[in-house]
Amino acid sequence: MTSTSQRSTGAEVGSVTWLGKNGRLAAVPTGRRARRRLPHLLAGVLLVVVCVGGALWWAAGAQGRVSVLAIARPVNVGHVLEP
């Protein structure tokens, strides 16, 4: 295979996608392609922010638990529980 500084034949140019028809580097259109990616980028950032916020909210709610004691039979009001 030849380097990019040498002229190549038409058969070799067709196999290399980043070269134009005349053997020079092809210009990559950036304007339209960049606009297509912006909504996807914003949606991805929004999804990450919502997921992190939901995880923090869920974790904060789990910290507010209170210990309770369950008993197997009825007891009178004021009865002192012993181990």
Results as ranks from 00 to 15, higher is better:
Val45Thr: 11
Cys51Glu: 13
Val80Arg: 10
Gly23Asn: 05
Gly64Asn: 15
Ser3His: 08
Val75Cys: 13
Trp58Asp: 12
Ala11Ile: 10
Gln63Gly: 14
Thr2Val: 09
Val66Glu: 14
Val45His: 02
Ile71Arg: 11
Gln6Val: 07
Arg35Asn: 06
Ser5Thr: 12
Thr9Gln: 04
Ala59Pro: 00
Val77Gly: 13
Ala60Phe: 01
Ala43Thr: 07
Ala55Asp: 13
Val45Asp: 00
Val66Pro: 02
Gly14Phe: 01
Leu38Gly: 04
Thr9Arg: 05
Val48Gly: 10
Pro29Cys: 00
Thr9Lys: 06
Thr30Cys: 00
Gly53Glu: 06
Leu19Tyr: 04
Ala34Trp: 01
Val80Glu: 11
Gln6Trp: 00
Arg73Ser: 12
Ala34Pro: 00
Arg33Trp: 07
Ala34Tyr: 03
Ile71Phe: 13
Cys51Trp: 13
Glu12Asn: 04
Ser3Glu: 12
Leu81Val: 11
Glu12Pro: 00
Lys21Trp: 05
Ala72Ser: 15
Ala43Ser: 08
Trp58Lys: 10
Ala59Glu: 14
Pro39Phe: 02
Arg37Tyr: 07
Val28Met: 07
Pro74Leu: 09
Gly14Lys: 09
Leu25Thr: 00
Arg32Ser: 13
Leu56Arg: 14
Gln6Lys: 06
Ser3Lys: 11
Ala26Val: 05
Pro29Trp: 00
Leu46Lys: 04
Leu38Met: 07
Leu41Cys: 02
Ala55Pro: 07
Arg7Ser: 08
Val68Trp: 02
Ala34Gly: 07
Ala62Leu: 13
Ser15Phe: 01
Gly54Ile: 04
Arg33Leu: 10
Met1Arg: 04
Ala70Asn: 10
Leu81Gly: 03
Leu81His: 06
Arg73His: 14
Pro29Asn: 12
Thr9Cys: 08
Gly64Ala: 14
Ser15Thr: 02
Val50Glu: 05
Val52Arg: 08
Ala27Lys: 13
Leu46Arg: 08
Ala27Trp: 04
Met1Ile: 08
Gly61Arg: 09
Val80Cys: 01
Asn22Ile: 05
Gly10Gln: 12
Gly14His: 01
His40Trp: 03
Ser67Leu: 14
Trp57Met: 11
Thr9Ala: 10
Trp57Phe: 14
Glu12Gly: 02
Arg73Met: 06
Pro29Asp: 15
Leu42Tyr: 04
Gln6Met: 03
Gly54Pro: 06
Ala27Asn: 10
Gly78Val: 06
Ser67Asp: 14
Met1Pro: 02
Glu82Gln: 15
Thr4Ile: 14
Arg35Phe: 02
Ala70Leu: 14
Ala26Leu: 12
Gly20Lys: 02
Gln63Arg: 15
Gly14Ile: 01
Ser3Trp: 05
Val80Ala: 11
Gly14Met: 08
Val28Tyr: 08
Ser8Gly: 09
Arg73Lys: 13
Val66Tyr: 11
Ala72Phe: 03
Ser5Ile: 11
Val75Trp: 09
Val80Asp: 07
Glu12Trp: 01
Asn76Met: 09
Val75Ser: 11
Leu81Ile: 10
Ser3Leu: 12
Ala26Glu: 12
Arg32Gly: 08
Thr17Ala: 10
Leu46Asp: 06
Gly53Met: 09
Arg32Thr: 14
Thr17Ile: 02
Val77Asp: 15
Val48Ser: 12
Gly44Val: 00
Gly10Phe: 07
Ala55Asn: 12
Gln63Glu: 15
